[in-house]
Amino acid sequence: MLVLGIETSCDETGVALYDTEAGLLAHQLHTQMAMHARYGGVVPELASRDHIRRAIPLMEACLAEAGRTLKDLDAVAYTRGPGLGGALLVGASVANALAFGLGIPVVGVHHLEGHLLSPLLADPKPDFPFVALLVSGGHTQLMAVHGIGQYEILGETLDDAAGEAFDKTAKLLGLPYPGGPMLSRLAEEGDPQRFTLPRPMLHADSLDMSFSGLKTAVLTLVTQTQATLGEIDETTRKDICRAFQEAIVEVLVTKSLKALRQTGMKRLVVAGGVGANKQLRAGLDTAAARRGLEVFYPPLSLCTDNGAMIAYAGAMRLSQRSPAGSFGVAPRWDLTTLPRP
């Protein structure tokens, strides 16, 4: 079954072709990284009309990349929610028009289901059940995944997402865009012993997390250091970056292990942009190896929002005869209310 996937929930347009026999055939994404860097900040281009401009050319590029035509499609999957209403409607309209015109099924996919199934596009892929750590600029959640459509939220951030904490702290430290990855690079050269930042809720029984206090703690640390040292020199900046990253990584590793312990599961799946962080990967890999647990990551190119995960999740739902969706969007949509296929 050949499925076209369309993702337009926020500010990236992603289109992909997934074949249930041959795997991922094509994957196209419109990002504005170069433009962002030029303006020194994020230029989201949230405009629904930007998705309108990108969707069809990206779809044509996918078909060309895979050497297929529209007639080869067996189904269309799109992100039904959660996300911005106007942006979601573009994907929903394109997907439904295509499916109607071609006389094939259309399925609306939950954006987070796409993310947490994305590691299944890797080789080797994890078997069910597993604990998923979804950690990105917009989300920080731990979930128990028993099978397709069987998701249980174990814990999540009460305020800022981990990736958001990275980006905002980078901005506080005066780092140029994109701040998060650069903060991580500086942290690698920092001294982990010099400063210690708080780890909120680290020892709480719950699997919930909180990262907004870290931003304030960094702000206070910068002010105090400026008061004693004058200017923040390069070494000090690296040491602050390191202290920040140590705090985030320790919270994520500790909570992930706690989730595995509580559920008795042996596999951890990491999805989302922050899953690319080297220190986080090293921390998780080391901790898991020591306990005989396995950790899986999606291919790097599928960590951020993309159409491949939507095509894949749609294919899984259709192949398990889940009722196909009707035309609609769900800007606010609770993942745990999804039906089993």
């Binding site: 600029g137 951030t157 009460l158 997402a161 958001e164 907004s212 931003k215 304030t216």
Partner: peptide, 27 residues
């Protein structure tokens, strides 16, 4: 950044009777 805008909003929502999470809407 870090001045407490979302914290204020959390206090306001709790004051109105909302119980539950008040997440940053940045993303």
């Amino acid at each position: 950044l870090g001045a407490g805008k979302t914290t204020f909003t959390r206090g306001l929502l709790n004051g109105l009777g909302h119980i539950g999470r008040v997440k940053s809407p940045t993303y």
